[in-house]
Simulated assay, not measured.
Amino acid sequence: MTGCEEPDRTVFSPKGEAGEGSLDVIMLSIYIMTFVVAVVLAIFIYVLIRYRQKPGDNSIPKQVEGSMKLEMLWTVIPIILLAILAVPTLTHTFSLAEEAPKDEDPLRVKVTAHQYWWEFEYPDLGIKTAQQLHIPTDEKVYLELTSDDVIHAFWVPELAGKQDLNPGSTNKMWIDADEPGTYEGRCAELCGAGHALMNFQVVAQEKEDFDKWVEKRKNPSSEPKTAEQKAGKEVFTQNCMSCHAIDGTQMKTKGEKAPNLTGFAERNKIAGLLENNDENLEKWMKHPEQVKPGTYMPSFDFLSDEDMDNLKAYLQSLE
């Protein structure tokens, strides 16, 4: 509760059905725990007063050791309270893992976690992107989650609870957002040196705006227009294309070693952390380890100032 950067970006301000269900379970547990604390505290205070030592009174209070009635009481009550909490918790948890309906045409996204970035693939739309998950508002989006290396956890506090991503297996959940906005996501499973910096965003858009984004991703503007951008593309080809892919070009990688950079200029974050501007882009490319410890991104501090400027111009032209 105290560790969030912004007080309104918490599980206590849900923006969708899944988040509201999680908040209901949280509040139920808080009510139960508050009740237990209040009862125990009341009994404690009563015992302190009722059985305090009085001047001249050396009598021994009635002993209740081995009382079947008391032992049944403090055994049955916790069981009842746990049952009250367990039923809605399990119901909500299993409802979030429901399969995408086959008689409809739901939006499906394959989420793959890497050390330390996120890959989002829309198999029915032929789109693959990174760091930003775009979804339409007022619609369930079904996620298939897995990991490329170690155990990670997908968590968007305002939209849904946490779900582990395990290498070699796939977990499923759905999320939704009832209003447009950019929602911050985190990895919630200690996964290495860069764990605390493994951030991503969920961008919820009105259906019309989402459809426009899909169209732009299917027809990206990836070809350089100026001499500087053309020179930057050559620098990219020589240094970056073995790991990064850009849709709409001939630059493809053999594997998803690094984020897909299609539409890079429209992202508001670099590496999920830094504000997207030329200064931070150069900082990331020259000293990635200083920005995100443990990253596999190599340093490109050997590039000349001219090559670096050209490369930045090309990357910032990708829309």
Rank of each mutant, 00 (worst) to 15 (best):
P180T: 14
Q201D: 06
G192Q: 07
D164K: 15
K218T: 09
A196C: 03
K172C: 05
V203M: 08
N166C: 10
P167I: 14
S222Y: 09
G181K: 09
E189K: 01
N171I: 04
V235H: 12
V203Y: 01
G194S: 12
R186L: 15
Q201W: 14
A227R: 12
M198V: 02
G194P: 08
D178Q: 08
L190T: 03
C243G: 05
S169F: 06
C243M: 01
V202P: 03
F236E: 07
Q238D: 09
F200G: 06
H195W: 02
Y183A: 08
Q238N: 11
D247Q: 09
P167L: 14
C240H: 03
L190Y: 01
I175W: 11
N166P: 01
C240S: 01
A193Q: 04
Q250D: 13
Q205G: 09
K218F: 10
P167F: 13
A227P: 05
G194I: 12
T182P: 07
I246Q: 00
M173F: 13
N239D: 11
I175V: 13
I246F: 00
E184L: 04
H195C: 05
D247G: 08
V202Y: 01
E215P: 08
D211V: 05
N239S: 13
V203P: 01
Q238P: 05
T226E: 02
K212H: 02
T237V: 11
D176I: 00
E179P: 01
E234Y: 00
D209A: 14
H195P: 11
K252R: 08
C243E: 03
Y183H: 07
D178A: 05
N171W: 12
M173H: 02
M198N: 15
V203R: 03
H195Y: 08
E234R: 00
M251Y: 14
T182M: 11
Q201C: 05
I175Q: 02
A193S: 10
G185M: 03
N166Y: 13
Q229R: 10
T170I: 14
K172W: 06
T237K: 10
I246H: 05
V203S: 10
S222F: 07
A227L: 06
D211K: 14
F200H: 10
N239H: 15
Q229I: 08
G185E: 02
M198Y: 02
R217L: 15
K230V: 01
S242H: 12
G168V: 05
C191K: 03
K216N: 14
L190H: 12
L197P: 03
S242W: 09
G232M: 14
D178S: 08
Q205V: 12
M241A: 03
A227Y: 09
E184H: 13
A227T: 13
F210A: 01
Q250G: 12
Q238A: 11
A196R: 13
N171V: 03
D209S: 04
A245D: 02
Q238W: 02
M173T: 14
A193H: 06
T170N: 11
W174T: 11
S169D: 00
K207Q: 07
N219I: 10
A196E: 11
T170P: 08
F236R: 05
I246N: 00
K252C: 01
S221N: 12
M241G: 06
A245E: 06
C191F: 06
E179I: 07
E215H: 02
K233P: 04
D178L: 00
